[in-house]
Computed example of a mutant assay.
Amino acid sequence: MTKHSEGTSCTPLVVLLYCGWSYVLDGVQSALENNVPVVVLQGTGGVADALANVLETSKKDRKSSSGGRDKEWTGTVIDEVLRQQVKEEFTKVHEKGSEVGEYKIMQCLQKRELITVVHIDEEETTMVNAVIRALLKSKSVPEVLRILDYYMPARLFDGEGAAAAAHNDNEQNPKHPSGKDTVGMFLVQAMLMDQAEIVQFIIDHNGVDITAFFTKAVISKLYEVQNCSPILIKL
């Protein structure tokens, strides 16, 4: 783990949930409680699919009758609809079910903003983007800049040699995203998530070649997201 002079760490932590039995929920819950993001690989079975499925339900707006009036609930609502689905999904993992396991899943949902779901059949770059989104959700701007610095053409912070190491690794593993590709992924995801400071950092310090990077395909994708329009106009 790389330490900096102020005692912070630039080493990003992300939990990848692949399949898994009920006992792995202890680690997932602990990670979320410590603000470590979790990327769930849907389609791998086990608690990964259970958590991914109930997460989608928890995001939906539902109505609950209270005092003769229908009340709109938005966000993570632990109601009977969700409880029943948690029970059904967990029974797929353990035939007899488990109240403890069901409770842990519902506890994880309380931190659903730190959970990102990606399907196992997606391309590798899609999974990398999922990890980047997870980091952008959970890290402060200074922490993200420290992570980005590793992949920038010229290092701006301490830790000499890391950028060269990333370059050498890419030469040995050409299928892996290069440092430039990774910065480009960070740029797109930061724009999609309306994180202007990170976008500005990448552009100001020549993290990507703007004229080559912003192709018609990239711009069209960004314009599909309403939040990106103001940032694109500034560019």
Rank of each mutant, 00 (worst) to 15 (best):
K59M: 12
K59F: 11
K60C: 10
R62M: 07
R62W: 02
K63D: 01
G67W: 10
G68C: 07
R69T: 08
R69E: 11
K71G: 00
K71T: 10
W73F: 14
V77Q: 07
I78Y: 00
D79A: 09
V81P: 01
L82I: 06
L82R: 01
Q84M: 11
Q84T: 12
V86F: 00
K87R: 13
E88R: 14
F90P: 00
T91C: 11
T91M: 12
T91N: 09
K92F: 03
V93T: 09
E95W: 05
E95T: 13
E95G: 09
G97H: 06
S98K: 07
E99Y: 09
V100R: 14
V100C: 09
V100K: 15
V100Y: 13
G101Y: 02
G101Q: 00
E102M: 10
E102T: 01
E102V: 02
Y103T: 12
K104S: 01
K104H: 06
K104M: 13
L109A: 02
Q110M: 14
Q110C: 12
R112T: 08
T116V: 15
V117C: 14
V118P: 01
V118W: 03
I120G: 04
I120R: 11
I120W: 14
D121G: 11
E122S: 15
E124G: 02
E124H: 13
T126S: 15
T126D: 14
M127K: 15
M127F: 15
M127W: 13
V128G: 01
N129S: 15
N129T: 06
A130H: 10
A130F: 07
A130W: 04
I132V: 14
R133F: 01
L135Q: 14
L136R: 03
K137V: 02
S138W: 01
S138V: 06
S138C: 14
S138F: 03
K139V: 03
S140F: 05
S140A: 12
E143T: 10
V144G: 02
R146E: 06
R146Q: 15
I147C: 08
I147F: 10
I147R: 08
Y151C: 03
M152P: 02
P153C: 09
A154Q: 08
A154E: 11
A154P: 00
R155S: 13
L156F: 04
F157C: 08
F157D: 11
F157W: 07
D158A: 11
G159K: 06
G159E: 10
G161H: 08
G161K: 05
A163K: 11
A163L: 05
A164N: 13
N168P: 01
D169P: 01
N170S: 08
E171M: 14
